[in-house]
Nucleic acid binder design. Structure first.
Lengths: 275, 275
DNA sequence: ATTCATGTGGAATTAATGTTTCGCTTCGGG
DNA sequence: CCCGAAGCGAAACATTAATTCCACATGAAT
């Protein structure tokens, strides 16, 4: 706690917090976590407002600052402010970083830039094109379903498994059709017209997904589909379907837009149910 | 002075000041000039400190704010603060505007806008902060691994399962640890120092993930981690770790940045192997 | 030259903020 | 099981900050 090593700049403070956090008591760790995750709030807030946001007492914040070697909370807060104050310098830093990016031109950095770009592009395109009325309709269908059957294999499996996770947390009944052990038809066998199937598939459409969804549709199970073309076999089967075109980089398509749509659909459904 | 047009975002306030400054009395003009030239000081300072810096009385600052339609100085100060609250928040402002645009589009449309915004924000932040040197290092490690163990449960499972899909297509040997039937430790049991584990976990860190990774690290298996805080238990275990902070909407975090990082890491690995 | 409206400075007032204190609780060692 | 230390929460306290108020100054109109 000697005042020799109390940092006056943010990066140093940040690493000090990381280093010390392990030895901190419970509440102080809580503050440390909050501080690292919400540095802006620390910079602008008052002791009371920050304390409330971090779910601790004001006195804990003061103790936190003091245990890092500062005289009081305000002194620590100044460091957080400095981070934003010389934003001009931060800008320079960013430019330097960007130069680093391109100078070293590490192959991995290029790959990352490529995929980040593809993700942004896909999101922007989806924003432009998505018909929100369809989203309303799909959310209505899902909200009224007894059980939601999630069908997405291979490349689409991360999407359906994410929806499964979210639906589970929200307390909505679902059935994740994973085709494990070739049991796809058994997993979907109990679906009725009161349920809804969410089918996710992209070129080349996994044949098992298509055949499963077809059978369900024949048994009058309403289908919501996420796919990448009006020519997709799912498009003609589904009552509502979304077209999501992901940009690709070096032949690998982004997933950002699809997963964002999946979350949106899930949460929109949960909100309807809440009423 | 109707409070209808008192701006809540900085650009609007700025042009309002420019516009009105000509008609202001002497001291108020003085404040206006100072405010436009030293916006940071307005954001962080106190009435007294700013008054001194601008060579006016504290009361003049209050009058200035009120003559722009704000109730007091603090209200005006908030606008100056919003400008600095990390581009992230500036992004939020844009999202708010977008929401206004699409207000007509109903609840599901709002949810979608929220998540699309969160996704973009997360991607932008990751682009700024990701250290590509770490990406190189991680890709090197993975490229040299005999088998890549993918560990991500619950919320992180979509990520690990996506990596599994991609690695499979690329012909790279992997083992997806899904904890199915509580067999996590059996699935990781054969890993050696020649392999590499990729661990993905976010707050609240699934205890099984943490214990699996710990055990593997003890057996000298190198670990690459993707997590959301330097205080994450994974951060201290991993040889290389990435911090990905996803923005959230209504309490549900985006996944766009994480999945983009996962693809990048996978493809970068494949490219190293090709040589 | 006088009057009136407006602007201005500085003190007074009131609200709020940061910090300290103190008693209660929790947890680990003897 | 008891004791002591450390952690913690709530309230009290002292300080500082924002705002209001009022007397005086300024300058234009009569």
């Amino acid at each position: 706690m000697s005042d020799v090593d109390t940092p006056r700049d943010f990066p140093a403070l940040r690493s000090l917090i990381v280093e010390r956090a392990a030895d901190f008591p419970r509440r102080l760790t809580q503050v440390a976590t909050y501080a690292l995750e919400n540095p802006d709030d620390i910079a602008f807030g008052t002791v009371a407002s920050i304390a409330q946001a971090a779910s601790v007492q004001p006195s804990t914040l003061v103790r936190f600052a003091q245990s890092l070697g500062y005289q009081g909370f305000s002194e620590l807060q100044e460091v957080f402010q400095s981070r934003l104050r010389d934003r001009v310098l931060n800008y320079d830093e960013r430019i330097v970083q960007l130069r680093e990016h391109t100078r070293k031109s590490g192959k991995a950095g290029l790959v990352f830039d490529g995929f980040a770009g593809a993700a942004e592009q896909s999101l922007a395109r989806m924003r432009e094109r998505l018909d929100t009325a369809q989203l309303e309709e799909a959310a209505d269908m899902l909200a009224g379903a007894e059980t939601i059957y999630l069908i997405g294999l291979r490349r689409s499996f991360p999407i359906s498994s994410y929806m499964a996770y979210a639906l589970g947390k929200l307390g909505i009944r679902y059935e994740l059709v994973d085709g494990l052990g070739g049991l796809g038809h058994e997993q979907t066998g109990f679906a009725t017209a009161k349920d809804v199937a969410v089918a996710i598939s992209f070129t080349p459409y996994a044949s098992e997904t298509v055949s499963l969804v077809k059978r369900m549709a024949e048994r009058k199970v309403p289908v919501v589909a996420i796919t990448d073309s009006p020519l997709s076999p799912l498009a003609s089967i589904a009552r509502v379907w979304f077209e999501v075109q992901e940009a690709n980089f070096e032949g690998f398509r982004s997933m950002a837009a699809t997963i964002t749509l999946a979350i949106s659909l899930t949460i929109a459904t949960a909100e309807r149910r809440a009423r």
